[in-house]
C-alpha cells in the first residue's frame, strides 16, 4: 500500500509519531504485526485481504505505549476497537493517530478520535451469514444438546489464552484466570474449567466485543468461541437496543436503565 508507506515515512520523519503499527509479510502465507520506528523499515508495510489480525490489541501494551505517540493502520474492526478502548480511557488523541483503511481499501487519516467515531458509525456491526446460520442451528437445539455441544467443543481447549492475547478488549494487567486466591478457574484443562473460562470471557466482553473474530482466528484449534460473544451481541441488541461503541463511554454493562425489561425475575 503505497499511500500508507508514504504517510508512515512522513509521520516518522517529522517525529509526529514515534511508531507506526501495521502489517508485514510473515512466515508462510501469513501476515504479522510490524512496528515501524525507523523510516527505512516503512517499506515492509503491506496491506491485503490476509491482514485480519486486530492490531488494536497492541495499543494498550505497555511496551508499545512507552515508545511514544503511536500511529496505527486501522481497518474497520480495528477502528471500532479503538473507539471502545478510548471510551474506557485506554487511548486518546495524545497517544494515538489513526490511519484508517476503508472497506474499499482507501487510506484516510483522521485528525482525532471523534472523526473516527463518526466514520465507524456509518457502518452497522453485522454478523456474517455462516455464523448466523450456526447461531440459528444452536438456538433450535434443546438445552441438553447445547450443553453437549459446548462441552465437546471446548474439551480440547488447553487454555493457551491465544484468544485473550488476540483480543484488544482483554487488556487487564491481571486477568481473573491468573488469580489463585480464590482460584476462580482451574489451571489445568478440565471440561468444566474450560467452560467456566469461556463463559467468563464472554461475560467480560458483553457490551464491549465489536465482533472482529480475532479470538477465533487466533485459536490454534479453531474452536468457535466467537459464537459466544456473537450471541451476547445479538441478545444485547434484543434487550437494550442497537449497540455501537461510542466515545460517550456508556458501556452496556456499566450503565442501566430503571425500566430495563426482563421476564424471569419473580
Amino acid at each position: 500500500m503505497v499511500d500508507l508507506i508514504k504517510r508512515a515515512k512522513e509521520l516518522l520523519e517529522s517525529s509526529a509519531v514515534k511508531v507506526v503499527i501495521g502489517y508485514e509479510q510473515g512466515t508462510g502465507n501469513k501476515t504479522r504485526a510490524l512496528f515501524v520506528e525507523k523510516t527505512e523499515d516503512a517499506d515492509k508495510l503491506i496491506f491485503d485481504s490476509r491482514c485480519i489480525q486486530n492490531l488494536a490489541a497492541y495499543v494498550t501494551k505497555k511496551e508499545v505505549k512507552e515508545k511514544g505517540k503511536m500511529a496505527i493502520a486501522a481497518t474497520l474492526p480495528v477502528m471500532r476497537s479503538i473507539i471502545q478502548l478510548a471510551s474506557e480511557f485506554q487511548v486518546n488523541d495524545n497517544n494515538l493517530l489513526v490511519l484508517g483503511i476503508t472497506p474499499e481499501s482507501n487510506l484516510i487519516e483522521f485528525a482525532n478520535l471523534v472523526e473516527v467515531e463518526t466514520f465507524v458509525h456509518q457502518y452497522q456491526i453485522e454478523i456474517d451469514a455462516r455464523n448466523k446460520e450456526m447461531l440459528d442451528k444452536l438456538a433450535k437445539m434443546t438445552s441438553a444438546e447445547r450443553w453437549k455441544f459446548w462441552v465437546d467443543e471446548l474439551a480440547p481447549c488447553f487454555k493457551c489464552y491465544a484468544c485473550r492475547a488476540a483480543c484488544p478488549m482483554c487488556y487487564c494487567s491481571r486477568c481473573t484466570v491468573d488469580f489463585n486466591q480464590p482460584q476462580w478457574i482451574p489451571v489445568p484443562s478440565t471440561e468444566l474449567g474450560n467452560l467456566e473460562w469461556h463463559i467468563m470471557r464472554a461475560m467480560h466482553l458483553t457490551g464491549r466485543c465489536i465482533d472482529c473474530d480475532a479470538c477465533y482466528n487466533a485459536c490454534p484449534l479453531s474452536i468457535p468461541i466467537n459464537l459466544l460473544t456473537k450471541r451476547m451481541l445479538v441478545d444485547a441488541k434484543e434487550h437494550f437496543g442497537n449497540y455501537q461503541p461510542s466515545l460517550k463511554g456508556d458501556n452496556l454493562m456499566s450503565t442501566y436503565k430503571p425500566d430495563d425489561k426482563e421476564n424471569f425475575i419473580q
Binding site: 441438553a144 447445547r146 450443553w147 459466544l228 450471541r231 444485547a236 434487550h239 454493562m253 430495563d260 426482563e262
Partner: peptide
C-alpha cells in the same frame, strides 16, 4: 442487566 445477559449466556451454553 448482568442477570439478563448471564441468563441468556447460560441458556446458550446449555
Amino acid at each position: 442487566r448482568r442477570w439478563i445477559m448471564f441468563r441468556s449466556l447460560c441458556d446458550f451454553t446449555g
